[in-house]
């Protein structure tokens, strides 16, 4: 378990760093696949099997293929590179490292277990939500499906996600039409 975690965690982080470092866009896409695929592995280890599969299907199989497709459509030469100026890189890297340090120290300082107990005491919950705390559960497919249909059997008086689900579906339809409208070939405007 911990071995798998270490491997996936290292691959995710190193892949993300490689995305930042590499100059060629296609290499960036490759490292992004490594990083996002490892994040899917982390999701499997965190008992989120459906999210992991969705990550693989939507991100790696869908979005990234779309991005590479975009790269090919917009490439003005083989292995096109648009380098950033060194000063910008150094400044961005420094600010990023400072931000990373800040987040790390915050994560270290917070007493997560204590805050969990406090939240549970404040909300009047006596027991932890069944199945999602002890790492013994992994088949989240049915609970997720019911949650998206507006039923929450795992939480007492819990609200479902029927309305967000419907909004997301309408949103996807709008995006489908909008993207097709935006990207349509314009024959009248010829830019020299």
């Amino acid at each position: 378990m911990s071995w798998f975690f270490t491997i996936f965690a290292l691959a995710a982080c190193l892949g993300a760093v490689a995305v930042v470092i590499s100059q060629s866009v296609v290499r960036m896409a490759f490292w992004l696949v490594v990083s996002l695929g490892s994040v899917a592995g982390l999701f499997f280890l965190a008992d989120a099997d459906f999210i992991g599969a969705a990550q693989l299907l939507i991100y790696v199989g869908g979005t990234l293929v779309l991005l590479v497709f975009g790269i090919m459509l917009t490439a003005s030469g083989p292995y096109m590179k648009i380098p950033a100026s060194p000063a910008e890189t150094v400044v961005a890297g420094l600010i990023g490292l400072m931000f990373l340090f800040m987040v790390f120290s915050t994560i270290n300082d917070v007493d997560w277990n204590g805050s969990k107990d406090r939240i549970m005491a404040a909300s009047g919950q006596t027991e932890k939500p069944a199945g999602f705390d002890d790492g013994s559960e992994g088949n989240t497919l049915r609970p997720l499906g019911f949650a998206l249909l507006g039923v929450r059997p795992d939480v007492k008086d819990g609200a479902g996600y029927l309305l967000p689900f419907e909004i997301a579906s309408v949103h996807l339809l709008v995006v489908l039409i909008g993207a097709a409208y935006l990207a349509r070939a314009k024959r009248r405007q010829d830019v020299a």
Partner: peptide, 20 residues
């Protein structure tokens, strides 16, 4: 439990290698 979904997801990675 999400076997079919997972299988289709994994097979969709194959495309990426071919594009690469």
């Amino acid at each position: 439990d999400c076997g079919l979904f997972l299988l289709l997801a994994i097979l969709s990675l194959e495309v990426f290698g071919i594009i690469m």
